Each structure stands twice: as C-alpha cells, then as structure tokens.
Amino acid sequence: MSTLTAPGRPTAPGRPTDLRGRRLPLPVRLGLAVAALAVAAGIVYGADLGGPVLVVVLGALLYLLGLYAASRSVEGPRQARNRVWSALIHSAFVLAVLPLLSVVWTLVSKGMDRLDGNFFGTSMNNIGARDPMGGAYHAIVGTLEQVGIAALITVPLGILCAIYVVEYGRGRFAFLVRFFVDVMTGIPSIVAGLFVLAFWVLMVTPLFNDGQPAYSGFAASLALSVLMLPLVIRSTEEMLRLVPAPLREGSYALGVPKWKTILRIVLPTALPGIVTGVMLSIARAAGETAPVLLVAGGTAAINFDPFQNNQASLSLFVYQQAGDASRYAPARAWTAALTLVALVLVLTIAAKLLARRNRLAR
C-alpha cells in the first residue's frame, strides 16, 4: 500500500513525503553568486571586454543560470522557476534603489560643505564673486511663502473639485472637468509661468501699479498653483473612489445627509492618500524654477512681502549658483539643493504624522 500525501494521490517514488520538501540552502546561493561574479570578472578582464558594469551584468546572468540549474536539481522545476523570477524581482528593486541612493549620497556629500549658520542666516546681497560667504536665507523665505500660498489656494480647490467629480458630477460637464484635468496634468511648467506672466503680471498688476507690470512672489504662487491643481484633483479623486460604497450606504441608511457623510466618513477614510497627493504636488511646486524666474524675477536680497517686488526661491537659487562663475558658487548650489530636499522631506513626514494622528484620534 503506497503512502498518500493527499486523498487519492500516491507519493511518487523517490519524492520526499515532507510537505515542504528539500530546500536550496542559503550558503549555496551565496556561493553561486560569488562564483558567478568571479567567472564574469575572469571573462571580462581576461578578454579585455569592459569594466565593472559589464562584470556585474554578466555575473547576474551567470548567477540566474546557475541558480536555475541548482534549484531544479534540488527542489524541482516549479521552485526553480520561482527562484529565478524572485531573483529578477529583487534585482529590479536594487536597480530602482541604486539611483536614489546615488542621488542622496551625492547631495549629502557635496552639500555638507556650506551647511553652516552663515548659509542659513544671510542672503546673497552684496556678495561678490571672490566672497566665500553668502547664503540662501532669502531663497528659503521665498520658497516657504510661495509654496505656502500656492497650497492655500490649490488644496481646497482641488479637494472640492474632486468631491464634485466623484460624488456629484454627472453628464457632460463632469466629463469636461475630467478632460481638462488630464490635459493640465501634462502642462510644462514654462507654459504655466507664461500664462501667469501674460495674465497677471502684464494685464492685472498694471491696474494697481501706475500702469507698470510688477513681479512678485504671489505671481509665482499663482503659477505654482496651476501646476499643483491637477495633481491634487487627480490624486484626491482616486482616493475618494477607493472608499468602499457600503460606508456611504450605511451612513445614508442612518439618515445622515450626503454632505455630512462626505465630511465625516468619506474624507477621513481617504485622508492618508489625499495627504500623499498633496505632498507630491507641493514637492513638485517647490522644485520648479521656470515659473519663479518668469514672474518673480529673483533677487539677492531678503523680501518678506510676497505681494511686492522680486522674490527668490531655493530652486531658482540653485539654478543661478550652478551657472555662476565664482568658485564658491557650486558649494552653495549643492547645499541649497540638499536644503530643498530636506525641507520637502520634513514637510512630508510632518503631514503624514498629522494625518495618522487625526485618524487614530477618531
């Protein structure tokens, strides 16, 4: 009488009866990886075919072939295919993470040179090409004010528009709203800057400035709002669609009005995703250079008033310092880039923690 592993299924001769079966040990897989790299290095450098990049690529191919052969002989063909595909997925993850790590390492290593109090406490006003001092205080102020005003304009409009499209929008008008949101998503930043330049700077501001066009940080905020709005609408719309319909139906069954259901049930449920979309739009706005250059002009002095006179931003500061002939300018540019990334990271973490705390409080 044969041993059964499942009702009516006899065990194949020579196959283990353990449900887990035999496994390819980790030291064997590590040994295959080392051997593959060694063979690849011998082939590449022995034949003088290339450098370390080709060694890694050829070693990866040899490792996959060796892993498949070893796993097939020990674990069977199904597990061998699973091993190969798992290795490919992990390799894709490493390839995706390597550029990010490279960018972070480059920013940190080169941005530490001017990471001092003078950089964060002074501007570039009266700083010459031979002066090693000077900082980005004026640019930090400009970025915070411009992005903050843009967020105040865009976030309520974007969320309300998404609520209309998901909860109320029907027919041709809702279709047109979705269509124009999709079109605006692909608008280049220079187009948004030109639009605000033509409409606000050249047409509106002369009415209040004795006929003269006026550049300002508020004009930059309007241009950034044009770029942020489709991202906020689209991300909020997708998050609202993910809220389960039974939540709405249960609220309606209890006699709760639709507006209150949206305010107290739908929005809190979708809040983490909405916050993520808002922070992505803020990150994009904080890194834009062309709109600020067109409608805010940029300045080397500190300007706390976003409604009057030129104003700088961190992205514009990086652009200007990267093209400056001074030997001290590249260090300022790298430190400003690191500051911009750190600023967006801090804002994102703070928003995530705030959204998570509010969700837990409910």
Rank of each mutant, 00 (worst) to 15 (best):
E249T: 04
A36N: 00
I159M: 11
T236A: 10
L294C: 03
V266Y: 04
A150K: 06
T143L: 07
V74R: 14
T276N: 12
A290H: 10
R20V: 01
T205M: 01
I265S: 07
Q212S: 08
I149N: 12
G323L: 02
P132Y: 10
N118I: 09
G186P: 13
F120Q: 01
V166E: 11
F180W: 15
S71D: 09
F317C: 01
N82W: 05
F195I: 15
G31N: 09
R284H: 10
W85Q: 09
K258R: 14
S216H: 06
M184D: 01
A41E: 00
T11F: 02
G42L: 13
I159T: 12
M184P: 04
S315W: 08
T143N: 08
K352L: 02
P77N: 06
L231K: 10
A300Q: 08
G142N: 07
I89P: 00
A361L: 04
G21W: 03
T3D: 01
D324E: 10
M184I: 05
P132W: 10
L62G: 07
A129C: 08
Y328E: 02
G211F: 01
G50R: 12
T276K: 05
A33N: 02
L231D: 06
L316H: 11
I233C: 01
T154Q: 07
A350G: 09
E237T: 13
P230W: 08
G193E: 05
V344D: 06
V318S: 04
I265V: 15
Y45T: 09
F199E: 12
L314F: 05
T106V: 15
M228H: 06
G287E: 14
L4E: 13
L340S: 10
N209Q: 09
R29G: 12
L95E: 06
V204E: 03
R178L: 14
E238G: 09
R327T: 12
K110F: 12
L30Q: 06
L197S: 05
Q321A: 13
D116A: 11
M1E: 11
I163L: 15
W85F: 13
E75R: 07
A33R: 04
A151R: 01
E145Y: 04
G211L: 00
N310Y: 02
T289W: 13
I262F: 03
V341L: 11
Y215W: 07
A296H: 04
V243A: 11
S326A: 05
G117P: 09
R284S: 06
R78P: 00
A35C: 06
P156V: 15
R264I: 01
Y319G: 00
T185E: 11
L37Q: 01
E167G: 11
L144A: 14
P10F: 02
A253Q: 05
L254D: 01
I149R: 09
V166A: 15
N126Y: 14
L98Q: 10
I163W: 07
A92P: 02
G186F: 15
I190W: 15
I282W: 08
R356H: 08
